[in-house]
Design a protein around this nucleic acid. Sequence first.
DNA 1: CACTAATCGAGACGGTACGTCGCGTCTTGTG
DNA 2: CACAAGACGCGACGTACCGTCTCGATTAGTG
Lengths: 197, 197, 197, 197
Amino acid sequence: MGNDIDEVVRGAGRPRDPRIEQALLAAVRDLLTEGGYAAVTVAAVADRAGTTKAALYRRWPALPHLIHEAAFPGELAQDLVLGADLATDLTGVVRGTRDTLCSPIGAAALPGLLAEVGAWPDLHAAMMRRFGGVFAALEDRLQKAVRDGDAHSEARADDVLRLAIGAVLAGLLLTPGELDDAWVDRISATLTRSLRP
Amino acid sequence: MGNDIDEVVRGAGRPRDPRIEQALLAAVRDLLTEGGYAAVTVAAVADRAGTTKAALYRRWPALPHLIHEAAFPGELAQDLVLGADLATDLTGVVRGTRDTLCSPIGAAALPGLLAEVGAWPDLHAAMMRRFGGVFAALEDRLQKAVRDGDAHSEARADDVLRLAIGAVLAGLLLTPGELDDAWVDRISATLTRSLRP
Amino acid sequence: MGNDIDEVVRGAGRPRDPRIEQALLAAVRDLLTEGGYAAVTVAAVADRAGTTKAALYRRWPALPHLIHEAAFPGELAQDLVLGADLATDLTGVVRGTRDTLCSPIGAAALPGLLAEVGAWPDLHAAMMRRFGGVFAALEDRLQKAVRDGDAHSEARADDVLRLAIGAVLAGLLLTPGELDDAWVDRISATLTRSLRP
Amino acid sequence: MGNDIDEVVRGAGRPRDPRIEQALLAAVRDLLTEGGYAAVTVAAVADRAGTTKAALYRRWPALPHLIHEAAFPGELAQDLVLGADLATDLTGVVRGTRDTLCSPIGAAALPGLLAEVGAWPDLHAAMMRRFGGVFAALEDRLQKAVRDGDAHSEARADDVLRLAIGAVLAGLLLTPGELDDAWVDRISATLTRSLRP
DNA sequence: CACTAATCGAGACGGTACGTCGCGTCTTGTG
DNA sequence: CACAAGACGCGACGTACCGTCTCGATTAGTG
């Protein structure tokens, strides 16, 4: 006894075909790569995935939600390891952010996605959640840096993270193609300097 | 002599009604304020301006160009005065950027505009040009700061500007409503620290 | 022996809930009355009956068959009594036809049903069968009338019946609301005249 | 002067391409012939006509209106000539009605059209108007017949016409294929008999 | 008492059509 | 030429209905 509700919820009706979900996500990634954001149409995605628009709308409230999930699956902090010296750790954050947002798929999806955020509050929340892990890790790391005397005591993780994300965003939207590894090093060094006590 | 070309161009046929241009720009600003980016459709703009779509397309190659001009007229560096100490000047740059991009009209127009940039190279160029004056002024100021010993010698104006713009952009797109004056001060202070020799 | 087949057919598996059949028929009649033919969708019928689409399709090959059975149950000649003089009997046929086809439910169902007849041969057959009893009775009556000298010898029951049905049909489809009792009397009189020797 | 309104109405905007109207009507007729009522889809019609759905909706409020105009253009009484003896004239009415409603296109369109009549009051009115000429002519002819002693004085043109239309309708919807010339003669004779004084 | 087989509810599935909207172009008549 | 008006081709949108299917859970009769 106990989880009657769960059982009812799980058991009701024909279960969704899990392959359709994957096929739709893959179709979005294909179309983003081949034709950019404009090519990602509800009909085109469904077609490419070998299914129908209705199946798509059953899973996501609108196209941008699906695109978001397809372009930025999982947690951004996934392979972020903080533990070296502060400069190295900040480089990791900046590089990770750049790699994620500037990947072919990410770069194709992001501008359009950001434009739709205003119309879909839940989409906005979902995007913010992606940065949750990075923020927590960075906050911990910064507190340690303050204790170790590597950072001044007013340093704020949210400001640092927003500067990093913002730098990538501005680069991606305004001057794409200049965000090479040298740029990562320069921005990381700048952030490191800004934290000095 | 002199402006033959102008005369030929101007002289042929009925001259354009200059009021239409202004009415269209005003209509875009009204619609942005009232209904956001989604409300700014060609038909709605022309209607609100009391004119027609054809008149609009005679003046701008496409809607985003008109929106750009309506939301961000003139040069961004317009009322930027650099000459005080470095911290104050940087605060001016950050505040000016925030004020421009986060004005009700700017905030409504920017996400959509950035999404369209990929499709209209000339629109991208036009947007970049807006920052030209700020960049030049900041570069001058930074060189002086290096000479004065206020900034380290590897400081780059483009990186600083991109960090400032990026910070505003990230704030606007991801956490709007948090970009108050205290935020401006914190970010400006951070940038100033990052420039210390 | 005798009903082995019946027993085998009946015995296997869980028996059908007889209340569902009635609930579906009643649901169709409700929806026809409330919202007309367009309101009678498979999902709406199943919902209203408190059951599901699958249960419906287990009982009828398609929606029109169910609608037919709901709107025109049983034999049309049910309460047709022929035996008075010819004029009275013809009035009975015309009135009966009108009453059946022009009842609120019948009138709502008929136009749609007739449109579907082309797509469902078995539905066509089922509809024709409804008139079988009336036709047989009318044919008998007409033969007697010929013998009695009340009708000319070339009178054909099928033509008379088609004229009667057609008159109701044309009235229902083209000028509904005019098929009152006076109309029944006029049409009956006309048919009676046409049969005179 | 005087028709300012007309001039304004006519002169405003780009005029409709008259070829599109014809192409759409022809497309409906083609599709009716080839695939029946079910094949007449908004998209299919527009496609076949080499135009778009929007152009169609600009001309007719809905598909049934277009189908009606395509299947039953002009006045039904077009080539109806009344003036011979009553029996011949009635045969002309019955035959004309049958020919119009039972033509391949008419037969394909009619059942569906009649089903939609309930949903579109204006469509109903348009269909009724088609019979206006026939009714007027028949009324005149009947009055003359009464004066000549060929018809009894209570004969009503509307009843006769409804009987004729109804006979064709019932034949078309219930027993198509039996409405040959012999049937026309039988029904006409029946109607003639029914009018005898 | 298990076993079998059809039913029940719920709801996803592929397919197809709907009517609307926006874009950027075009074609008129009138200044 | 510009201008108002509005039709044009194009293509996407989100919804609705159809008839089928796949589940897990009943609900009889049978072995």
